[in-house]
């Protein structure tokens, strides 16, 4: 092949690739901007753990499914993206595919989102838990006042412990997880200051075996009531079941992990935030902002295990704490 022929072939390839890029871009534009009001809203979720983790990711999947009962939406999920780079690829792909709303469900995804969102001004992005929109009008961030749920759980834990020792298994000391645990500790302390709360952050969201050993260490230290956050707690609940320790769940309803030991769970109902984002989009008034869910606005709910017989005294104390947090007469003490 002569130098001239090679040059012609190379030029032809460039032209073909450029044409393909133009066609792709045109299709993307059509998908994004061509949605008629009657078309369903296309929502994509990118989440770090499994859709059925009985924790952070499942709480969002469940919320989206409930949202689908109110709105015409389609849902596409990419889960298990513990690796941030993988999540970033998924987020960008969804935006390129013309999804209307892309949810990056993890505080670790913020850096990637701040780079991707400016490239797709017609796509709405939401991420959490966080309180940062990077100053972009197409980025919503959502958070949850998990300290309130933690506080209510803490009140009940203080009532239910006989040994006066309560154990907490946490993953990493950040965001809504730290808020939940701090709220829990303060709830116990406000109810019975003689109760000792041992907190153990295992520095992992996913190490189920380490979570189990942390729970075992709590039991050895005398804990008869425990709580924990994130998907690794399935290991800790196994130990709680084995020793008959009571368990308080967080993020998702964890009753299936132990109907005989789970007292209650603080459930994140993300519909509160999702509804506002969808409504903004339908009204053509996308206005990126921070949306925080709490007990008062219904974004955070207490779910009690119907199979666990909770005494009226403890239930009343929990209800009083919840009411106080809602009307502002009680503070969790968490900044």
């Amino acid at each position: 092949m002569t130098k001239l022929t090679r040059s012609i072939v190379r030029s032809a390839w460039v032209v073909v690739l450029a044409a393909l890029a133009l066609v792709t871009a045109a299709c993307a534009d059509e998908d994004t901007r061509g949605r008629s009001p009657d078309d369903p809203i296309r929502i994509a979720l990118v989440a770090p753990s499994a859709s059925n983790d009985l924790a952070f990711t499942q709480s969002m999947v469940d919320s989206l499914n409930r949202l689908a009962e109110e709105y015409e939406i389609t849902i596409d999920v990419t889960d298990g993206t513990f690796v941030i780079e993988d999540a970033a690829v998924a987020v960008r792909s969804y935006a390129e595919d013309g999804f209307d709303i892309v949810l990056a469900h993890g505080s670790q995804y913020g850096g990637s989102l701040s780079e991707i969102a400016p490239d797709f001004p017609d796509t709405v992005f939401a991420w959490g838990t966080s309180r940062d929109t990077f100053g972009l009008s197409n980025v919503y961030s959502y958070s949850v006042a998990s300290d309130e749920g933690g506080y209510v759980n803490g009140v009940m834990a203080a009532h239910l412990t006989d040994s006066k020792v309560v154990g907490v298994v946490g993953p990493i000391e950040v965001g809504d997880i730290k808020a939940y645990i701090d709220g829990f500790v303060n709830g116990v302390d406000a109810t019975d200051s003689s109760v000792t709360v041992n907190v153990n952050y295992i520095d992992s969201f996913s190490d189920v075996a380490l979570a189990a050993e942390a729970a075992q260490a709590h039991v050895e230290a005398g804990a008869d009531v425990m709580t924990g956050v994130s998907q690794m707690t399935v290991g800790a609940t196994g130990v709680a079941r084995e020793h008959g320790s009571l368990w308080f769940g967080a993020q998702s309803d964890q009753t299936p992990l132990g109907e005989e030991i789970v007292v209650a769970s603080v459930v994140y109902s993300w519909e509160y935030q999702l509804r506002q984002i969808v409504d903004d989009m339908l009204a053509g008034e996308v206005n990126g902002r921070v949306i925080v869910a709490d007990l008062a606005n219904g974004g955070l709910t207490m779910v009690y295990n119907p199979g666990f017989s909770l005494s009226d005294e403890v239930k009343s104390a929990a209800d009083a704490a919840e009411a106080g947090l809602k009307d502002g007469s009680i503070s969790t003490g968490v900044q």
Binding site: A50, D207, R241
Partner: peptide, 17 residues
Amino acid sequence: ALALELGIFQQNLTNGH
């Protein structure tokens, strides 16, 4: 041994073991 000791399975249970 890991799954039966824990009494549960989850995505990426072994977590680097």
